[in-house]
Design a protein around this nucleic acid. Structure first.
Lengths: 248, 248
DNA sequence: CGGGGTATTGAAAAGTATCAACTATCGTGG
DNA sequence: CCACGATAGTTGATACTTTTCAATACCCCG
């Protein structure tokens, strides 16, 4: 049985792996002290639901490690992913009580949570948190709009290529590049989760991945391990301007 | 020939029709004075482009009257609308030089613009503007995510019904309701613009509007004037939970 | 009255979903 | 250790929705 577990060993903010990218990125050490007071960690196992849409949320927080998804579901069960939460991403909305979305851990997940009320008062008093949150929210809005183009106008093949290039790009900023410049990474999502992200069925996702493999755009080992021999080729398939800038 | 025109008669903020909803909503009168110094009005005719994607933007601003669209275009011409800008909505991103999207006036448009540099310094100094902008950005993010569900998972008929209900709801907050509780409004968008919003072709938009008309969900007079006899019926067709709350 | 943009409608083609069978993989318990 | 079952993924055949291409209708304005 899946069970949530509250960590008994809180980390020190100064050693936090997402310190420089999360909502607390701009905080001075005295501000961090305030945050330390109202923060606590929570761990979730892969597959566990962090929050149900409509539930009361008494916290906001950051993803520390692992991946979570934000999804909306219609009455008849159709679901659409509306956000992919990676380490340092923020969860929750100050000034609102309930969650508008389901939040689900797709891998094992650790979150750094702040009690909502004190976090909100802190936002009013210190500009650094609010400034950073605005910046992050604007970035998310851009990402959401980029995704609207994918959902509204791209073909199934382009959608898959777009998703792969996003994941590849993210992983490339950290590590994982072969001598020849090929990219290697693991898919953090099931076929069904990919389908929910892309507005497709899981069968279509599977078919298009097979097609990209057949055409040599990607190389598959197992179901999740992917090698991209030529990143520009992938960008081409995604229908994007083929200058990622990454290799410029 | 379409030509932009700078109004020579600036309005007073205290008489501004969007005063209480725009980015300046929370400003005190002394803060408004600062804004007055850096603001100017610009007018655009229907069809005119306000900003091209990639262009340098030396201002940010608010829509005062009229409607504008935010669109992305792929190399081969496929375009997706990613935002519909109504009076009080904010245009531009502090901290970024270029525009990521095309902004086009779909009706005659008046914008209240702030020179970007001074606006940014003001944001650092006075929290009221930044707070309000955060709130507005979070709302836009929610709207974008709602739209991702529409784009990714709804049928053509549901998409049209969704768009109509959004427009109807907006107009209903202002005015325009017959004695029987029916809603009446004018479409501010062409069929093509609706298609770009919904990720459809204009032909499909036309067909589905005809179908909704045939089925009595809407009544059409001319091409743009719409009557919705039963709003809950429309919400049903949109696939939304049929409690708009509006008539509760 | 004519012309250009806007909208509607039809027929055929293409893309994706649906339904269904089958395969692969992994952990569990006999 | 192997069989079993459960979960995840693949592939095929067919049906359905939406697009595409094309022709026609509408309407405002000069």
């Amino acid at each position: 049985m899946l069970k949530e577990e509250t960590l008994s060993t809180p980390h020190d903010c100064t050693e936090c792996p997402i310190r420089h990218r999360a909502v607390c990125a701009r905080c001075e050490s005295d501000e961090l002290e305030v945050l330390e007071e109202i923060k606590y960690y929570r761990s979730f196992q892969a597959g566990q639901t962090v929050i149900w849409s409509g539930d009361k949320m008494d916290f906001v927080g950051s993803v520390v490690t692992g991946i979570a998804t934000l999804t909306q579901t219609m009455e008849d069960g159709r679901t659409q992913m509306v956000g992919l939460l990676l380490p340092s991403d923020f969860v929750g909305r100050p000034g609102r009580d309930g969650s508008a979305y389901d939040v689900v851990a797709t891998t094992d997940l650790v979150m750094c949570c702040f009690r909502k009320k004190p976090f909100e008062t802190m936002m009013e008093r210190t500009p650094h948190v609010a400034q950073r949150l605005l910046e992050m929210t604007l970035d998310e809005l851009d990402a959401a709009r980029e995704w609207m183009l994918v959902l509204g106008r791209k073909t199934a093949r382009e959608k898959i290529a777009s998703l792969l290039s996003i994941i590849a790009r993210r992983d490339a900023t950290l590590n994982l590049r072969t001598p020849q410049g090929a990219l290697v990474f693991d898919l953090p999502l099931t076929r069904e989760a990919m389908a929910d992200y892309l507005g497709l069925t899981l069968e279509t996702v599977s078919r298009q991945i097979s097609a990209l493999k057949r055409d040599g755009v990607i190389v598959l080992e197992g179901k999740r391990h992917i090698t991209v021999p030529d990143f520009n080729r992938l960008l081409d398939e995604a229908g994007d301007d083929s200058d990622g800038g990454m290799f410029a």
